[in-house]
Structure formats: C-alpha cells, structure tokens
Design a protein around this nucleic acid. Sequence first.
DNA 1: AGCCCTCTAGGTCAAGCGTCCTACGAAGCT
DNA 2: AGCTTCGTAGGACGCTTGACCTAGAGGGCT
Lengths: 202, 202
Amino acid sequence: MGATDTREHIVEAADRLFYENGYAATSFADIAAAVGLSRGNFYYHFKTKDELLGAVIARRLASTEAMLAAWEEGASSPVARIRRFIDILVMNRAKIIAYGCPVGTLCEELAKLDHAAQDDAAAIFGAYRGWLAGEFAALGRAADADSLALHVLMRSQGIATLATAFHDEAIIHREVAALTAWLAAEVGEASRPTPTAPQRPS
Amino acid sequence: MGATDTREHIVEAADRLFYENGYAATSFADIAAAVGLSRGNFYYHFKTKDELLGAVIARRLASTEAMLAAWEEGASSPVARIRRFIDILVMNRAKIIAYGCPVGTLCEELAKLDHAAQDDAAAIFGAYRGWLAGEFAALGRAADADSLALHVLMRSQGIATLATAFHDEAIIHREVAALTAWLAAEVGEASRPTPTAPQRPS
DNA sequence: AGCCCTCTAGGTCAAGCGTCCTACGAAGCT
DNA sequence: AGCTTCGTAGGACGCTTGACCTAGAGGGCT
C-alpha cells in the first residue's frame, strides 16, 4: 500500500533514468518497467511527463540542500567543506565518466529543448552557488564570494564534461588536484585531514 | 541540380538544428522543412539518422581543423593564438547562453544515448586538444603541454555550461578574463594587440 | 456487513518517429 | 528521338510515444 511510497519509487527511478539516459530519451514505459508498474497507471500519479520532471527536480534540489546542510554540521572548516564539494568529482567518477554531471547535463538538455523547467533545474546549481559563496564569505572573502563560488562550480562542470567526452579518469584526478591547489592558494591552507591529491584507484 | 549541393544543405541545416535543439529532438521532418525538401526524399541522401550524424560530425571536425590551421597562419604568437581560442566564448556568447557549447553538448548527449559515434564527436575535442598542446609546446612547455591544453579546454567547457544554466553573460566575461590572466601567468605575457578584458557589449 | 476511497491493471487512441517504396521530371548520352 | 541516369516528390509501413479511460482489487471506515 501507500501511494506516497509508489510515487517516491517512481520519482527515484525517473531520477536515475533521466540521469543515465537523458530526459527526452526516457519514456514512461522505461520508468514503469524499472519500478515494476503497469504503464497506464502513471496517469494516477503523474498526469504529464513535465509534472514528473518537476518532481525529479524538486527531489534533487531537496537532497542537495540536505547534503549541504549535513556538511555544515560535519566538516571542520569552510575550506574543508569546499574540498568536500570538490571531492564529489572523485567519489562519483565512474558515473561522471559514463553520464556526466547530473545537474549540468540536465540543464543543458532542458536549455536545448527550451523547456519551461530549465530555470528550476538551474536552481540546483543555485543551491551549490549560494552554499559555496557562504563558505567563501566565512573565509573573509565576502566581497567576491559569488565569483569564487562560480569559479569552483565552473571548473567542476568543465572537469565533468571532459571526463565524459574522453572517458578518462586521469583528467578528474589531475584537475581536482589543481582545483584543490587553487583553493589553498586563494584562501590559505588550513588543517587538511583528508588528502585530495590524485590517487589512482585499484 | 547537384545532389552534392543538396546534401551539403542538408548537413548544414542538420548541423544547426542538432546544435540548437539537440540530436534526439531533431527529426527528419524538421531538417526537411528547414532545407525545403520532402521528408521521404532523405532516404536518397541519408539512409539513417546515424549516417546523417556522421556527416555532421565530419563537417564539424573539418571546419574546426580548417579554423585552427587558419589561426596558425594568422595570429602572431602561440599565446595570441591560444587567446584567440579563448575569445571564441565571447564572440559566440549569445549562442552559448542559449544552446551551450556545440561540441560539449553533443558529446554529453551521445554519451547518455551510448551512441556509437560518441568517440567521433570527442575527436573534435581531440583536435582542439592537440592544437592547444602544440601551442603550449611551442612556448617551451612540451613536458606538460597536454595537461595545459586540457586545462584550457576544461575551463572553456565549464564557462559554457554555467553560462547556459544561468543564462548569464557576465559569467563569460569574468571567467574569460580570469582564464586569460591564468594564461599570462602560466606562459608569460607577450605582446597583446587585442584586449580580452571583460567588456560589456552594448 | 456494507460502503467508500485509494490505488492498480490492462488497454485504446492519435500523433510522431524512422524506414522504405514507387512514380515523375530533368538532364545528358547514343 | 529514344534511352538511361540522377534527383525529387509524396506517401505508406510498422513501431513507439505520451495521454487517457474503464473496470476492479484492496483496506479502512461507519
């Protein structure tokens, strides 16, 4: 039972399929097969594909904000928190090489489709942007906090795009190290418990 | 007359529509309407959509290589040539904000579709990569020429992605200025006839 | 029990896709 | 002139899409 559960399963599966195959290339039938539901039943939960997309974007935005809030409690310093953001690229490298950045690729696809929800998707970037800017402001860089935040975000996107295009993991390790070095030079080096230097996986 | 002309017109229109609307979202009917041909007649020129994609990629690769070769003749120094590459972002800013980078968005879309031609599309990136590496090598940085080339390419992609997502032209101007400054610091400043500092358009 | 509301299954519908065929006109060659 | 070749026009096919309806199963309520 529980329509809420079923709806959540649908959004979860749609989230994954939209990421792996793209929004336009994912059909209701694909999602239904992934969840194990009948095709026609989608009308009860989601009237249109756009409505489903809105739910997926809302889910991603909520989980992003939750993750950032958790980092706020967990990590020791603003610099360490920013590094934690950068390290996402390394942790998710396998998926990034195969499918790119979930946020960036969705925004670009929606921009091409001139979709009404493209600004909602960009709001996920906005969450990262605001959070990063807050961390830079906490480091005494309030004046150019937004520029610094966009710079980190920009390099993350560039790394993801090239890693996807060339299917090359070394690009991620090398450029993450360069970005971490830039951060240290920009705001000063604090204590560094976890290394982000390029380390090849087994 | 001239099937070659017609074929060229088709590839030209497909190139533009693939860029503006994406590969999957562009139908034969769309291209036929743009060229002014009947839909069914595509079978004579291109048997499948994949074949058309191959022709579009080949056309982009050829025009890219031609442009790079022309730069080799035109610009004065390797640094000036690299700056010329960076300035593409400013020159094409309107289209980039609307549709993103032609190469990057195509590569990401094909990666999601797991398309057979994704490596061919990445070869366009490869052309830029090799050309940039050659310029850095000419500047005495042969040892890390490829890394430097990838870094420039990476930042170009990041700038394009964020500018598209936020529909913000200021990001392009600010980050192009930052990238130009990085280049000057990295390989030393040469004579600089044309400024790349952020300058707002009218 | 009886009822109602929630949720699901299966299936129809028009429209769109890529694919593919056949017939017509315009040249160029013998 | 007759014939072949090239290029175009228009439409038919089989399939999948998203959208949508109807019938009925299941659980909680009075």
